[in-house]
């Protein structure tokens, strides 16, 4: 029964999370998609626990929390996969064309540079990079974050190219 309570909380999350994303977009809330997912998770988990205490005589918190955590993380995983994937962005742009075909040169010369400029815009909006005329430089916050990322990459033995290694 505690697992069912966890699943009920998942259902609340699955309704609340997209509703929050939609409202944030239409009402221009200053909250990022990840923060909205976190709010939806905390609220739905809280509601689930309250429901469990009220309805189930011997409510097992970890039974409910385990299935809730798993399903919410699967949701976040799927969300992250479609949110800003470069590969899926290329695939979607191909499928959306009337003839479903595009010259490779157009992807290289137009779409990828556009993606590049979009991500630079995100870094500027996030206060990590600043632009002065035609040049870009990292802010103190950007240098700080890059330092943390570099240390984590070294600790976990991760390279700094962001390219997929197909030899593995």
């Amino acid at each position: 029964m505690s697992f069912a309570v966890g699943l009920a909380a998942v259902a609340v999350f699955a309704l609340l999370a997209p509703a929050l994303q939609f409202m944030a977009r239409t009402r221009a809330w200053p909250l990022g998609p990840v923060a909205l997912l976190a709010i939806a998770a905390v609220v739905s988990h809280g509601l689930g626990v309250t429901l469990g205490i009220l309805v189930v005589p011997q409510f097992q918190y970890w039974d409910a929390a385990s299935v809730f955590g798993f399903c919410v993380m699967a949701y976040v995983f799927a969300f992250g996969a479609v949110y800003k994937s470069v590969s899926l962005g290329i695939l979607l742009s191909l499928v959306d064309r009337p003839d479903r075909r595009a010259p490779l040169s157009e992807i290289v010369e137009r779409q990828v540079p556009d993606l590049f400029r979009g991500r630079i815009g995100n870094l500027i909006d996030g206060g990590l990079v600043e632009r002065s005329e035609s040049h870009f430089a990292a802010t103190a916050a950007g240098r700080n974050m890059a330092g943390h990322v570099g240390r984590l990459r070294r600790a976990f033995g991760i390279g700094d190219t962001s390219l997929y290694d197909f030899s593995e």
């Binding site: 800003k84 630079i120 995100n122 950007g142 974050m145 890059a146 976990f156 962001s162 390219l163």
Partner: peptide
């Protein structure tokens, strides 16, 4: 960390 496009853009600029 491993394949993040935006993070690697930032680290490349700092480096």
């Amino acid at each position: 960390l491993a394949w993040g496009f935006t993070l690697t853009l930032l680290t490349a600029l700092v480096q």
